[in-house]
Design a protein around this nucleic acid. Sequence first.
DNA 1: ATTTGGCATGTTGTATACAAAATGCAAGAT
DNA 2: ATCTTGCATTTTGTATACAACATGCCAAAT
Lengths: 224, 224
Amino acid sequence: MDGFNIAIPRSTLPQVAAERLRALIIEGILAPGARLNERELSEQLGLSRTPLREAFRLLAAEGLLLQLPNRGVQVVALSREDVCHAFEVMASLEGLAGELAAARVTDADLDDLKALQADLEKAHKRRDLPAYYRVNRAIHDRLNAIAANPVLAQTYRALNARLHALRFRSNLNGAKWDRAVAEHRSMLTTLAARDGAGLRDLLVRHLHAKLQAVLDTMKGQDKE
Amino acid sequence: MDGFNIAIPRSTLPQVAAERLRALIIEGILAPGARLNERELSEQLGLSRTPLREAFRLLAAEGLLLQLPNRGVQVVALSREDVCHAFEVMASLEGLAGELAAARVTDADLDDLKALQADLEKAHKRRDLPAYYRVNRAIHDRLNAIAANPVLAQTYRALNARLHALRFRSNLNGAKWDRAVAEHRSMLTTLAARDGAGLRDLLVRHLHAKLQAVLDTMKGQDKE
DNA sequence: ATTTGGCATGTTGTATACAAAATGCAAGAT
DNA sequence: ATCTTGCATTTTGTATACAACATGCCAAAT
């Protein structure tokens, strides 16, 4: 019997630092394009430069930071094209998650998702955008969990982190929001029918719609 | 006029170190599961522990190394399941590459690919496995280049590195090899027809076949 | 006036020293 | 004999010192 995992979760200082930085980037406190001073940041975070530099390398590998030799790191500023490319990949990954989930989903899973869907619609009716985002994310996470592919989950998570800063700000307007909720509803029925290919298509289209929403909010502010 | 990129490519020591380590891992000189001693390795590579540790973090982010707090790093040993999961994702990404490539491919591209296909068949006829792998990789790289999605290319590359060590050793037997070559032929005609969905399916199936070949060679040597 | 060269300053890159944690071994207790 | 406990050694984690590089300023020359 060792179904229990009692190991106390320890993470290294660089990992913790990376998490903090990730949050700061996503919240926009560290703005895209901003150059990060090692000494300054290390003092603010209360650690030395060495673990901070390892955190930098982590985030650079994830694609959140850009490392310029002898010129330090800066927060990546995504161009409109970058966003399109990232969404193309995200859509494909999410489609795969759907396909896998359809093959493996249990009735219990479906019940959970139905509950989440109800929450989603509630948030939508209340026009509570933060709550909507939270539930939305929970649903997509759940789908990934059902897909039960850790490699997929990790790849997806890494990519998502890069875009999260943007999505955070993409304020859905009425029509698009309604449509997104409707799409979620059909996703659920498609999943219940165990229609993998159908769910895949739906998710891909769903993400393409999301891309449009993001691109709309990006309009004007051209970054490269 | 600045279509030229004259910037002399400089890389940091950690990046160079990471490349070396990646090569050593892929070639199997650093065996899966092996624990890497920082001091020892840094002396062998001729650098200090600091840049080496940053290289470790890079490779850990890529999924080639596993970091255990206060217990250093070790080369990841992929279980059969890990390989299946990775291939599922790879297949999806390669499928996306095919889909995109079909939409963007030019006649010049097709000519290049035809030439590569000829090389592939030659290598097959000669039963020259190393050459076959080389050309095979060139074809897949070319496809990714045509797809023109840097995010996809990077994601694909990272995942591929994790599996390369395995594929290296997967010795195709006669029947599977013949089939792979045939699949490549139909890929080319499907691409020429600009049939994105068709090419996607083909590539996904192609990779599933590859997975089977890899799993076969893994049989027996159970690692977890 | 503009440009170029050198210098001063600040910032990153690498090495090393020190601290903390883990590992292995041996001695003692049960 | 086996298991535990404490110590010595090894190894990793963090901080800091030093070196290399980049940047901005000022003076001098054209």
